[in-house]
Design a protein around this nucleic acid. Sequence first.
DNA 1: CACATGATCGCCT
DNA 2: GGCGATCATGTGG
Length: 207
Amino acid sequence: MIANSTNRPDSRLAFDPHALGLDEPPRTFFRRRTVAVARALVGAWIARRFRGRWHGGRIVETEAYLGAGDRAAHSWGGRRTDRVEPMYAEGGHLYVFLVYGMHHCANVVTRPAGEPEAVLLRAAEGPAGAPGRLMAGPGKLCAALGITVADSGRDLVGDGPIRIFSPRGARPRIGVSVRIGVDYAREAKDWPLRFYDRDSPSVSLRS
DNA sequence: CACATGATCGCCT
DNA sequence: GGCGATCATGTGG
């Protein structure tokens, strides 16, 4: 993990978590079953602090990746390399990787340390006034928030610059589908592990 | 609307 | 050496 990323978030994503009545979930939130965390993260906020202000969006689409038994997961078969190492951390850490040589993907690690499962953040919608569909896709979400591999391994719980905030109120209506872009994953390609807000215009694909 | 393609490079075999 | 947990743009119907 590198302490200081120079990447800056889109200034149009500035918001005030306290004004929105958001809370920071404890470590136990992230250590639960990965599917439960993937569902609970729909409606939560992902945010980055930059120059004393929070910038972020409300998560509207996630995917669960279930570790050693999941052919679509980077940790499939217990694979453990420098890149994937953050997936083996305790729930509540961040795992970021580069895909297609140009886009980053951000994941929230789940489960106790040693169980390499995670939730991919596929899309979010910005605060009131932000451009539509700015974060409608995992690569776009990372670009808008300035999240890169330099942030991989960060702890989302505590006093760091990237955190999750949860709403107290009603939960969104959740849709479920197969995961996107994992056709190579044999039996795992058909698992219903994508979760999205059925009422959001900012999910990555039409469903 | 439904594909099809190119960009671009780190990672793993 | 092959190939992605993607995206923007292009074509054709």
